[in-house]
Structure formats: structure tokens, C-alpha cells
Amino acid sequence: MDDQLALRIRLFRDSGQVRPEVAEFVATELGALAAEGRTVTEATAGMLTSHLMMALTRLLDGEPVEQADPDGQLAAELAGHPEAVERAYAIAARAAGSLGAPLPDSEIAFLGLHLAVLGRPSP
């Protein structure tokens, strides 16, 4: 993880927008992705980082999470990225286990999209 991405996490945590345990969970997940050889930087994973931290925070705060993808567009996009979908479900399971924040399918789909983009080779 590069310094800019670490700063993003720190700013979310220090400003109180996310709980420390959420910031730690996301940092750990990003570290695992980096350890697999993925390029985890502000440019490649900034949106993934923000989205996951805010989704987990909303769930822990008891806020409703809207279901999306009524026309199946997300599912169609993810059809070509089964590894990203598998990884998204694994992250969701770890979030439910360690934070008590079960991500709904719509959030898992968005997470899968972020992971699919992260899985693309760098230009």
C-alpha cells in the first residue's frame, strides 16, 4: 500500500468517519491483496478503500443499505470476473466474522467490481 492510500485510511479514521476497527480491517484486506502481487495504490484502490470503509460503517451504524442492480447490469459486468466475485464474497465473510457487518449482495457486487478493476494489469 502506498503512502497516499494509507493517508486516505488514516483521514477517514482520524476524522471519525469510520471506526478504527473498520479502518484496520480494510488496511489488512488491502495488505493481503498487495501480498498477492496486486498493485494496491491510491490510484488503483482508492475508490475500493473508500467504498468498503463507508459500506462497513453504514452497516455497523445500523443504516439501511439499498439493494441495487435491478436490471442485472452489475451481474453481467461481473460474469467475466469470477475470481473477483469469489474474493468479494471472501472479504464479506471475513467482515461478517470479525466486525459483525454482513455485506448484502448489492455491496458484494460493487466490491467485486472494484476488485475486478484492481485485478487488471497495470498499463
Rank of each mutant, 00 (worst) to 15 (best):
D3F: 15
D3G: 13
Q4R: 15
Q4N: 13
Q4T: 12
L5K: 07
L5V: 09
R8Y: 12
R10C: 12
L11Y: 13
L11M: 13
G16P: 13
Q17S: 14
V18H: 06
P20L: 06
A32V: 12
L33A: 11
L33F: 14
A34Y: 10
A35P: 09
R38T: 02
V40E: 06
E42Q: 13
A43P: 08
T44Q: 09
M47R: 12
T49P: 07
S50F: 10
M54C: 05
M54D: 07
M54R: 09
T57S: 07
T57P: 05
D61F: 04
G62F: 07
A68M: 11
A68P: 00
Q73K: 11
A75K: 09
A76Y: 11
A79T: 07
G80T: 03
P82V: 04
E83T: 10
A84I: 05
V85Y: 08
R87Y: 05
A92N: 07
A95I: 04
G97F: 05
G97R: 07
S98M: 07
G100Y: 02
A101V: 06
P102D: 02
L103M: 06
S106N: 03
F110M: 03
L113M: 09
L113H: 02
H114Q: 00
A116K: 03
A116Q: 02
G119V: 00
P121W: 00
P123N: 00
